[in-house]
Design a protein around this nucleic acid. Structure first.
Lengths: 232, 232
DNA sequence: TGCATTTTATTTGTCGACAAAGAATCGACG
DNA sequence: CGTCGATTCTTTGTCGACAAATAAAATGCA
């Protein structure tokens, strides 16, 4: 249980980022399940540093809503709010649409290259049936599209939503079959082509369809999960 | 210059919030102009506390983009990015529309009361020609509308945008006439009525018109300002 | 035994101090 | 007189320690 990780000579100032990135990944990959408490001292020992940088990393995570902190009492991994899931779906769909539209308008050649790289990775993940790689590359792909749209406000909200979605999908692929429909690959291709053609309206329609597809799939899972957890 | 503020016995844990709130206000009201450096030690002395809580407040402000921090070097008040102002306008307009639409759908009676209170304050500010009160109450009014829409993702993005707008407007009303068109009062009234009538489409149109109006006014100011700062 | 109250224990919030990383200053050399 | 390099100085990043706040355990009492 107590694996001795060793973090050798670090550069001054790199500590927070190290802790932040790792904690973030562990939260989004559900290694740290929602609601689990986070002990500062324990983390300090684990990373071989003082509590100060740990604390700063936690404050940043709290700012992004990945961690909830009760005053004078332990901070814990943020819960997933299943009750208000529809607000998440609503915002996610809107951001899919808006970022894809903007990408159609403002993308530059270099953006398309990056987007295509991510799409290639996503395709490879689908063919390898590697669910985690699918989740990651799907996220990266849409993040790249958002970047091509060049609106920092949308980008930051979208990233937050995609991360939250990463947690949800992770939940999904832990419990069920590890296959993501090949459809997604084609939908992505269509979106990329529409972006390249700078066809804003087509982008909007494709993005909405794509988002609806994903939302439907997650909702299906949620419903199924809810049925399973019903008392008999 | 060195006014001796006294912050007497504080409760444990209240320090960060105190510093955060005050710094935030000073940044948004341009008491701390964009680009001005922030010295931790100086703040620590001013508030009569150690650097630790100051630091945490700064980390949180950085998370909201109100403050930029260079590694190993001083953190400073975030600059206003005049070059990419259109991304701000675009996001602001969209959030005006979305939050008003959602308010039409999801508001409850208590929400309308709160909204009307803010509108009353806004009206009073307009009649008193108190620009700062207008800015504040206008912000609060739209924040209340967003709250009535009950989507935390939109709410947080919108609040961020409204704050950024508060800085812009502050810039505006420092330099020019302190009058906001009476039109805004009527536009607000129309929006509130549409929300109450749960007319989503009308809300959308009114919100868009209102946003366009505000954007146009700010752009007008920016253009005028740019002309003035041209070398002769 | 069951409940209220005191005591202990754990964990956070804050502090003062020190060392590293730049920036500014000074000085040597051309 | 200007440029480069060493030195000082300022400001941040990190540390270990202590005290407040709360939870958990222990104690007293009916």
């Amino acid at each position: 249980m107590a694996e001795t990780e060793t973090f050798p000579e670090r550069r001054r100032g790199s500590g927070v980022k190290l802790v932040y990135d790792l904690l973030r990944d562990e939260i989004l990959d559900l290694v740290l399940p929602p609601g689990s408490p986070i002990d500062e001292v324990q983390l300090a020992e684990r990373f071989g540093m003082s509590r100060t940088p740990i604390r700063e990393a936690l404050v940043r995570l709290a700012g992004e809503g990945l961690v909830e902190t009760l005053p004078n009492r332990s901070t814990m991994v943020a819960n997933i709010d299943f009750l208000n899931m529809h607000t998440f779906f609503d915002a996610l769909t809107l951001m899919y649409r808006v970022t894809t539209r903007l990408a159609a308008s403002y993308h530059q050649p270099a953006d398309l290259e990056i987007i295509r790289e991510h799409q290639a990775r996503f395709t490879a993940a689908v063919e390898a049936q590697d669910a985690l790689a699918m989740i990651a590359s799907n996220r990266d792909l849409h993040a790249a599209i958002a970047e091509a749209g060049r609106n920092p406000y949308y980008i930051s909200l979208f990233l937050r939503l995609l991360d939250e979605g990463r947690r949800l999908l992770r939940l999904y692929y832990q419990s069920f079959n590890d296959r993501l429909p090949r459809e997604y690959v084609d939908e992505h291709e269509a979106m990329i082509a529409a972006i390249e053609a700078r066809d804003v309206e087509l982008c909007d329609r494709l993005a909405k369809a794509h988002a609806d597809q994903i939302v439907r799939q997650i909702q299906q899972f949620l419903a199924r999960d809810q049925r399973q957890s019903l008392p008999l």
